[in-house]
Simulated assay, not measured.
Amino acid sequence: MIIVMKSSAGRKELAEVKKRIRELGYKPHVIHGTTRNVVGAVGDERGKAVLQTLQTLPGVESVVPILKPYKLAGREVKPEPTLVEIVPGLVVGGEEFVVMAGPCSVECESQILETARAVKAAGARLLRGGAFKPRTSPYAFQGLEEEGLKLLALAREETGLPVVTEVVNPRDVELVARYADVMQVGARNVQNFALLKMLGQLDKPILLKRGMSTTIQEYLMSAEYILAEGNRRVILCERGIRTFETATRNTLDIAAVPVLKNQTHLPVIVDPSHATGHAHLVPPMCYAAAAAGADGLIVEVHPHPEDAASDGPQSLRPEDFRQMMTRLAAFTDAAGRTLNGAD
C-alpha cells in the first residue's frame, strides 16, 4: 500500500503513520517528495486490507494499493526519478550522462594505473575493474581478490576516480565495501538473494546487472530485495540477454532501457561490452544507449587487449575509447544530457 500524506502533514503525523504501520506487521518506507511525503507499507500481501484503516489518521490524504509486485522499485510509489549520488558532485540519474570505464579484471599495478589515467583523460567518471571474477570455467583467471582491490584503491588515489567493482560472495561483502565506492552485482548473481539482502543493508550505491535470462519483472524484483532492506541507492544495468543469436556474445536488449525508465524510478545504464563481445560493436551500442534514454554506460577498456587476462576481444583500447567519447557527445547532447570531458 502507498500512504500519501497531506502537504500540510508534519513530522508528528508522519511518525504516527510509521508507528501504526509497524503495529500492523508491515515495514514503512518513507519517500520524501518535493511537495508531500509518501509512505510505502511493505509486507505480507494477504492482510494488506487492514492498512486501509490508516486513512483515518491525521495527516493522511489517501491509501492506495500498489498494483505491481515490485513495491519500492516501481513508479507508483515514487513517480520522480531517483538520483544516486556516488560521491559529492557525481550523480547517476540526473542531467549528466555518466560513463564508467576500465578493464574487465585488475591484472597488475601498471595495467590498472595506465587504464585509469587514460579513461579519466577521455572523460570517464568512474573506474571499473574486477578483483573477484566469476568465470564460466573454473580454470579461467578468477581475479587478484584483495590485492586487486588494493590496486583499485591506488588508482583512485592517483586519479580521483571512484571505483566500481564486483562482489561475488556474501562473505566478501564487508571486504569489498572497504575499498569500493560502488558495489557491482554481476549477471550470474542477480538472483543471489542472500547477497542482495546483505547489500541492502549497506549505505553504498549498488550497480545491479540484469541476468542473461532474466525478465524485466524478475530483474526489478531483484532490485526490490535491496530496496526492501533500506538501501535506496540502486543503479540498474542492461548488459544483454541470452538468445538464439551467435554473432554477438549476448543480445543487447536496447528496448529494455525505455521499458525500465517507464516502470521504475531507478537510474538505468548500459554495458555494451558484455552485450556484444566484440570491441568494434561497442561504440555503436554506446551511441544507441544514449539515444534510448540511458543514464550512462559501463565500458571495458584495456591498454593491451590482446594480452588481457579476461574479455580482451570486447575491450576497447584507450585511443578507441577516447574517440568513442568524442563522438558520444553528439548523442548525449541530442538526448538533452551533458557528458563530462565532451569537446
Rank of each mutant, 00 (worst) to 15 (best):
E109V: 01
Y139L: 12
M183S: 00
V119Y: 03
E166W: 07
G143L: 08
G102P: 01
E147K: 15
K78I: 00
E174S: 14
L149K: 09
M100S: 11
A153Y: 01
A121I: 00
L196P: 09
Q111W: 03
V164N: 07
K150C: 07
A101L: 11
N189S: 15
G123H: 09
V168G: 01
Y179P: 11
R75D: 07
M183E: 07
L126M: 15
K71L: 12
A187D: 08
Q201G: 10
L126F: 00
E85W: 01
T159N: 11
M183A: 14
A116T: 07
L196M: 09
P81V: 08
S110D: 15
V176G: 10
P138T: 09
E85T: 14
P81F: 05
E107Q: 12
A131I: 05
R135Q: 11
G89N: 12
E96I: 00
G186M: 05
D203L: 05
F141K: 05
E174R: 13
R128P: 06
P162L: 12
G93Q: 08
P79D: 13
V164F: 06
L152N: 12
G186K: 02
A131N: 06
C108D: 15
L199N: 08
F141M: 06
P79M: 00
D203A: 13
G102I: 01
G200D: 08
V163E: 09
K71W: 03
E174Q: 14
Q191D: 13
L154Y: 00
T82E: 14
L175A: 09
G94W: 05
I112H: 02
L175H: 02
L113F: 03
E174I: 00
A177I: 04
V176K: 09
F97M: 10
R125Q: 15
P134T: 04
V185R: 06
G130D: 04
A118P: 05
R171F: 00
L90I: 04
L161N: 10
A118L: 01
V173T: 08
Q191T: 14
F97P: 11
N169R: 12
Q111V: 02
E147N: 12
V163N: 10
G94N: 03
E96G: 01
Q111S: 03
G102N: 05
C104E: 06
L127F: 07
G123Y: 01
G186N: 03
L126P: 10
C108I: 00
E145R: 15
